[in-house]
């Protein structure tokens, strides 16, 4: 049976990395879950692109950061922060699609 990401992560968040990028952090509960995700390659550019309905080319980077048992995904903002019609200046509420990740 597949498990939900919330059984593995203690923090899932989004934020601007400058006005043109959104960065998503998944902080795992422990080293075991971090290693499991890294080993199984659970989070891929293709999967993130699918979750957000974006082209794979708009997913810039996926980085594993051992010191905080974390995984960081950086993607292109569809609209730069503050442009007319934009919805989230700080980019702080763009994480919810990650909550449907399973492993």
């Amino acid at each position: 049976m597949k498990r939900n990401i919330l059984t593995a992560a203690r923090v899932i968040r989004s934020k601007n990395s400058g006005p043109y990028e959104l960065t998503l952090d998944i902080l795992f509960k422990d080293r075991e879950h971090f290693e499991l995700f890294r080993r199984r390659n659970v989070v891929t550019k293709r999967r993130i692109a699918g979750l957000y309905g974006r082209p794979v080319a708009d997913i810039l980077k996926i980085v594993y950061f051992e010191p905080s048992n974390a995984l960081k995904i950086t993607m292109r903002r569809p609209i730069p922060s503050g442009d007319a019609g934009e919805t989230d200046i700080y980019g702080a509420q763009q994480h919810a699609p990650l909550l449907s990740l399973t492993y």
């Binding site: 990395s17 980077k61 960081k72």
Partner: peptide, 10 residues
């Protein structure tokens, strides 16, 4: 360490 991630690309 988590703060080192904050608002950064890499």
């Amino acid at each position: 360490a988590a703060h080192t991630l904050y608002e950064k690309t890499d």
